[in-house]
Structures are given as structure tokens and as C-alpha cells.
Amino acid sequence: MLTVAVTGATGAQGGATARALLAAGHRVRALTRRPGSPAADALRGLGAEVRHADFDDRRSLEAALTGADSLFAVTTPFGTDTATEIRQGMALVDAAAEVRLGHVVFTSAAHADRGTGVPHYESKHLVEQHLRTAGVPWTVIAPAAFMDNYASGWTLDGLRDGSFAWPMPGDRPLTLIPASDIGAFAALVLQRGDEFAGRRIDIASDEHTPNQMAEILATAIGRQVAHQEVPLAHVRTRSSDLAAMFEYFTAVGLDVDVTSLRRDYPEVGWHSFTDWAVAQDWSTLLSAAPAHQ
């Protein structure tokens, strides 16, 4: 039985990893700045130990990590900025090395090691590089585009009007993955640390064009849905970082070997986009107040 410290445990990737580890019978130490939050309480209800940890407080990180076997590390610039993500990510890696953890699994982004020019990919790559030199056994898992984003934000707003609003041409393929598969794969890597140490793995569970995704969403929702290409200029007014990402998706794409991943790691239980779409409670999602008014 492992004791795994999980950052971002109240978020999508960390939460999915925590649940997968708990289901496999391991101890989860959920690290959060808000141990009294409803999301933290939900993790306690599943059997996790919740510890306070602040990425800007090195002592709190080391105290939270001491005694753990391994760490699942996730960073994000959203809500702060990429400079903060880099600083906090490196501090987390340094704390893991200081307490001599047996394995650090860092979740990055597919292609982040390929000089994409996408700000929040480049920031993650800098944390990856720091991890490689920290003197602690490491693995980097790098997810493709998140399916979960299609049930929130401007995409969900568009679906209310029968439009799959996505800033890519309708015929350009994109590799995809739901948070649940990221968590399942991360749990597999953590449980088989010796096998995965020193490896960087791009991961995805399916691949579709926006036109195909619109068709799948239409079937799952039970209403007509058509792809509408959102101009990059419009995205840029909201986020130059996201605009750069979609520009990369269109010009280069995210090639990930989905077939090999499904063949080599069937125990992950990879979900197709159709699997994910039919599992969503669209009636509730679509009846909620729009995110952008």
C-alpha cells in the first residue's frame, strides 16, 4: 500500500487521481490551501487525509510531503500567471527532493516538450526540466485536450443554441482525454513506479475532428448540434495563451499514439469521446445559467 501526496486534489486531474488511488486501496494525502472546502470534505468522505499546503510556503510543502511514498504534482497558470506556475512548480519539486520522495509524477501537457510557443505549455516544460535534474525518481505524463472542457465555458454556452463553438477548422483532428483517464493512468504509473521512472508519456484516449465531435454531442444531447469555428481573433481578446494553443492545434495538431496506449495499458479503461459524452448529465448542464453573460 502506497501513501501518495496529491496536489490539485480538489481539481479535475488531482481529484481523478485521488479517487483512482483510493479505489485501488492506497492512502491518499490530499494537499490543498483550503482544507475546509466542500471539495476537501468530499475527499475526506472517500477516505483521503487532507493536509494544508501552500505552494508559496516551502515549510508547509515539506511538512505535507514528509512520510509520503510518492507525489502526484499538477500546476496551473490559470487564476495566476505562468511565472507563478513555474515558481510554484519548482518549489514543489524541490520540496519533494528535500524529503526524499520515492517517485514524483508530474502532469504536463502533450507536446509541451516540443517548443510549441504556447505559454502554459512552455511553463510546464520548464517545471519538467527542473524535475529531471532534482535527483528524485520522476515520470511526466502529458495529457492531450481535455474532453471535460466541452461541458463548460463558452462551449457549453454554444451547445444551448445548438452550436459546437470551437476555435478549429471542422476537419482538423484533435486527440482528447477525460480527466478520469488521466487519473487512472496516473494511478497506474504511481503503482508501477519502477517501470515508468525516467519516462515522459503523451497520453490521449480518442481522436476526432470538431465536425465529428459535434455529431457525437448531438446524439448524446438529443438535439441538433453543428460545429461553428470561433475566430482566433475572438479567442485572443479573452486569452492570448489559449489563442496560441488553438493556433498550434490547427497548424501542428496533437499527435498521440492512442492505439498503442489502449493496447499497452488496457487496465486504464480508456474512454472514447462517445463514452464521455453519453455519461454527462446534459439536461442539468444545459439548463444551468450561462457561464458568459
Rank of each mutant, 00 (worst) to 15 (best):
residue 46 L to G: 11
residue 8 G to A: 09
residue 16 A to M: 09
residue 40 A to Q: 09
residue 38 P to G: 08
residue 37 S to M: 05
residue 18 A to H: 06
residue 40 A to K: 07
residue 26 H to A: 08
residue 17 T to I: 14
residue 42 A to L: 06
residue 46 L to S: 08
residue 29 R to N: 01
residue 55 F to A: 15
residue 30 A to D: 07
residue 39 A to K: 10
residue 48 A to L: 09
residue 40 A to G: 10
residue 25 G to Q: 11
residue 9 A to R: 08
residue 31 L to R: 05
residue 36 G to H: 10
residue 43 L to K: 12
residue 29 R to D: 01
residue 28 V to C: 03
residue 13 Q to Y: 09
residue 11 G to Y: 03
residue 7 T to F: 06
residue 10 T to D: 08
residue 15 G to F: 06
residue 21 L to H: 04
residue 4 V to H: 05
residue 42 A to P: 02
residue 16 A to D: 03
residue 23 A to S: 14
residue 4 V to Q: 08
residue 8 G to F: 07
residue 56 D to V: 12
residue 36 G to Q: 10
residue 5 A to K: 04
residue 38 P to C: 09
residue 34 R to E: 14
residue 25 G to M: 13
residue 38 P to W: 12
residue 30 A to N: 07
residue 8 G to N: 06
residue 55 F to L: 15
residue 22 L to N: 04
residue 19 R to H: 05
residue 19 R to K: 14
residue 37 S to Q: 11
residue 7 T to S: 13
residue 54 D to A: 15
residue 50 V to D: 13
residue 39 A to Y: 01
residue 55 F to Q: 14
residue 27 R to E: 14
residue 45 G to Y: 10
residue 28 V to N: 11
residue 23 A to E: 13
residue 44 R to A: 08
residue 48 A to G: 15
residue 27 R to M: 01
residue 24 A to W: 01
residue 25 G to Y: 15
residue 49 E to S: 09
residue 8 G to E: 07
residue 44 R to P: 00
residue 21 L to I: 14
residue 28 V to H: 05
residue 56 D to S: 15
residue 50 V to C: 13
residue 4 V to C: 13
residue 54 D to R: 11
residue 36 G to A: 00
residue 33 R to P: 02
residue 43 L to V: 14
residue 19 R to P: 00
residue 11 G to E: 03
residue 9 A to W: 02
residue 38 P to E: 13
residue 55 F to Y: 15
residue 15 G to Q: 13
residue 29 R to Y: 01
residue 24 A to D: 12
residue 46 L to F: 12
residue 19 R to F: 01
residue 21 L to D: 05
residue 6 V to I: 09
residue 44 R to Q: 12
residue 20 A to R: 05
residue 15 G to S: 11
residue 8 G to R: 08
residue 29 R to L: 06
residue 52 H to C: 00
residue 13 Q to E: 08
residue 9 A to G: 06
residue 8 G to T: 04
residue 52 H to W: 14
residue 5 A to Y: 06
residue 35 P to S: 11
residue 48 A to T: 04
residue 10 T to H: 05
residue 32 T to G: 11
residue 50 V to Q: 08
residue 16 A to I: 04
residue 37 S to C: 04
residue 16 A to Y: 03
residue 41 D to K: 14
residue 7 T to I: 09
residue 47 G to T: 14
residue 53 A to W: 04
residue 55 F to T: 01
residue 50 V to P: 10
residue 43 L to F: 10
residue 19 R to C: 07
residue 50 V to K: 10
residue 55 F to N: 08
residue 40 A to S: 15
residue 17 T to G: 01
residue 31 L to K: 04
residue 26 H to N: 14
residue 44 R to L: 02
residue 29 R to H: 02
residue 52 H to S: 11
residue 49 E to C: 03
residue 42 A to N: 01
residue 16 A to R: 05
residue 55 F to G: 14
residue 29 R to I: 14
residue 46 L to T: 00
residue 33 R to D: 06
residue 4 V to S: 12
residue 42 A to G: 08
residue 41 D to Q: 15
residue 49 E to L: 00
residue 20 A to I: 02
residue 4 V to D: 06
residue 47 G to E: 02
residue 24 A to E: 04
residue 53 A to G: 13
residue 47 G to P: 14
residue 25 G to H: 10
residue 46 L to Q: 15
residue 16 A to F: 07
residue 32 T to D: 09
residue 22 L to T: 08
residue 52 H to T: 12
